[in-house]
């Protein structure tokens, strides 16, 4: 009987915490739809990464705007500091 009561309370507390977390996420994201979007599409792709100041900058091949030519990030380094801006349109 006592154990059953304990589990009832445990489940109730868990649900309340879960609801509070979801409401907080909704507030942060803007709406329940945005909260879902953040959980489904954003968080899995956001990584702090292991790069540190002083590490060798990784190289990667990029495509030019003409859709034909390629170049490497590291081709643009060496003479002056290179500010690299990652982003998208949306």
């Amino acid at each position: 009987m006592t154990l059953t009561l304990f589990w009832k309370w445990a489940i109730a507390v868990f649900l309340v915490v879960l609801l509070a977390a979801f409401l907080a996420l909704c507030k942060m994201a803007g709406s329940p739809k945005d909260a879902y979007g953040m959980l489904r599409y954003a968080l899995p792709h956001m990584h702090r990464g292991n790069l540190k100041v002083g590490d060798d900058a990784p190289d990667a091949r990029l495509l030019a705007l003409d859709g034909t030519d390629h170049f490497h990030i590291r081709e643009r380094t060496g003479n002056r500091p290179l500010v690299v801006i990652f982003g998208s349109y949306t």
Partner: peptide
């Protein structure tokens, strides 16, 4: 670069972050 969705880096003349 763990760059999604947006991020900034500066690489110095020696090729280091």
């Amino acid at each position: 670069y763990s760059a999604w969705p947006e991020r900034l880096y500066i690489i110095d003349e020696s090729g280091r972050i």
